[in-house]
Amino acid sequence: MPEFLDAALSRPNLVAFVVLLLWGLYITITHHNLVKKLIGLYLVQTSVIFFLVTTGAKEGATVPVILDGMGPVTADAYVNPLPQVLTLTAIVVQIATLGVSLGLVSRIYRKFGSLDEDQILAKLE
């Protein structure tokens, strides 16, 4: 067990990722309010994006923009840009999902007059 704890504590970024992911899942599953469910979903997506960014991070490295463009480039001096590019796309996807889901929720609210899952299900019967 201490071995496992050591491994976890030496990578606090991954601990943060796991906490965010589980927190998001918990909110999505337990809350009855549709908007709160969406907040949980957003947290899950954000945690995955955080994980992607963290795979490219290096200690002591800087933003991957080569300023002078002359001398030889040392890869250790810059963080890996590819996960950040993936992240940009993933954020766009996340925003699109959020837009569609909020649109759906607003139509549900206009139709059923409630955001509570139990009340909506009761009206469906």
Partner: peptide, 29 residues
């Protein structure tokens, strides 16, 4: 009507699905 609620449920499940898929891609990378 009913389809809105079904679509919302589909969206919740489906978005979790793509989030897990992206996580797997991150592990592979």
């Amino acid at each position: 009507g009913r389809a809105l609620v079904s679509a919302f449920r589909y969206l919740l499940m489906g978005t979790l699905g793509t989030a897990f898929y992206l996580l797997g891609v991150g592990y592979f990378y």
